[in-house]
Structures are given as structure tokens and as C-alpha cells.
Design a protein around this nucleic acid. Structure first.
Lengths: 119, 119
DNA sequence: CTGGATCCTTTGTGATACTG
DNA sequence: CAGTATCACAAAGGATCCAG
């Protein structure tokens, strides 16, 4: 996914792959608040199915972004948390968040200034 | 795409949407070098089809990330360039690039230290 | 409670032919 | 040259049922 171009110096794909997926950022967002159980994540993300949650968690785990700890109790208890690699995604998310805000502002300014900017 | 979650304060989706697509970053990467013609983009991104190139360019244009200028000559000439909004994606790409590098390094360190770190 | 397996729909992408 | 249209395919996502 997300390109097989061979522009040698443009290594942004890994981060993109980690972030891509309909619910990945939601999951990461929650885990930035601290360790969460599977059921906590599920109820905190309305609309997500177990399949997708598991699928995304597996992806993130495999990419060493999150840590999965299983407590062999009855019933089973599984906790997910960010690894250091996961934590290091913070600044990226923060920047993208700021960009999202600024972008919205900008679109609003564009609209209100169109009547003036016109020749 | 990329989630309809309702975590009010997590507005990273716009940036993610802009960046997502198999060739989006390749396109942006080239446009960061300056204005490019359609045919330039196409030959600079081996493997991309006209359909995908146009599709992605349309997306980016609609999101106000790139500017499309048509010169009504014969044959037609169209030039694409980054808008200010597009330029502002630079830091994000830069951060993701750095993350990609660091992540690779880290995975390599993990492998070589596994034999030592083991209890 | 956590998670796997199956089936189905939707969306992203590729191949190709056609047009002003 | 820059683009459109159509068909086909793969992958992402959703629904549902099953299991330790």
C-alpha cells in the first residue's frame, strides 16, 4: 500500500502505512491516553467492529507501534499500550492536527475574502 | 475515508486524506521541486497510469493542495504547482520522513540486541 | 472477554481504448 | 498533450456466526 515509487529519498511510506486505516488514528489517540483493554477500545470507538479493531491492532503490533500484553486469567484480559515507536508518532499526529485546524480556517477565510479579492 | 470517528479534538483526518493514495506523496514530492506539467509528472513517476495521476491530481486540487493552470494552446498545456496549503504540508512530510528513517534504524537495533536483551 | 473464520459490499487501482 | 470512459481486479471494510 501507499506506493512503490522509487524516489530514493522520500521515505514517508512507513509512517503513512502505520497511520492508514479507517480507525488507526482513533486507536492511537486512545492509547496516547494510556494503556487500554480490548473492550475499552471497542466501546470508546463507536461504530468499529471487533474484526476491524483486531485487524488494526494486529497491524500496529506487527509494526512495533503498540504492545499487546495477555493476562492468562479467566476470562482473558488483554491490554494494549504504545511502544516507544508508537509514542514517537505523537509529533506527527500533532502536526497533522494543527494542519487540519489551519486548513479549515483557511478555507473559511478564502470564502469570506472571495467577494473582495475578485477583480 | 480514514474514519468518521467523533473524537472531537482529533482532527488529523484532513491531512491523512490529502496524503493517502498510492501516488499522492510521489506527486507532492515532485511538486515541491517546482511547477510541473502533466507529462512531466507522468514520466517522473514510473508505473503510474494517466487515470490514477489525473484522479489524484483532481483530489489534491479539490482539497486546495495544488493549483492547476491550463494554457489554451495547441497542443494543450497544463501546469500543476503547490498552493500555500500544499507548501504547508512540507513539515509533515519531513517529520514522517524522519520517522521512517528512525524506525528502520530501530528495527535493526532491535534485531542485533535481541540475543543480548534476552533474559 | 478476546479473537478467529466466513461471506459480502465498497472502494482503490490497473489496463485499455477513445477524444478535443 | 491532457484528459475521459469502461471494464476488471484486488484490497479494505462490514456483518455475522463460531470458539477458547
Amino acid at each position: 500500500m501507499t506506493a512503490n515509487h522509487s524516489h530514493e529519498d522520500c521515505v514517508v511510506e512507513p509512517a503513512l502505512d502505520v497511520l492508514f486505516g479507517k480507525w488507526k488514528v482513533s486507536i492511537l489517540y486512545l492509547l496516547f491516553q494510556g494503556t487500554k483493554r480490548f473492550s475499552e477500545l471497542q466501546k470508546s470507538i463507536p461504530g468499529i467492529t471487533k474484526k476491524m479493531l483486531i485487524s488494526h491492532l494486529r497491524d500496529l503490533e506487527e509494526q512495533d507501534v503498540i504492545l499487546r500484553i495477555v493476562y492468562p486469567s479467566v476470562p482473558p484480559r488483554v491490554e494494549y499500550s504504545l511502544t516507544e515507536t508508537g509514542q514517537s508518532l505523537g509529533p506527527i499526529l500533532e502536526l497533522m492536527h494543527q494542519w487540519g485546524i489551519k486548513h479549515e480556517e483557511q478555507l473559511m477565510r478564502k470564502r469570506s475574502s472571495e467577494a473582495v479579492t475578485q477583480s
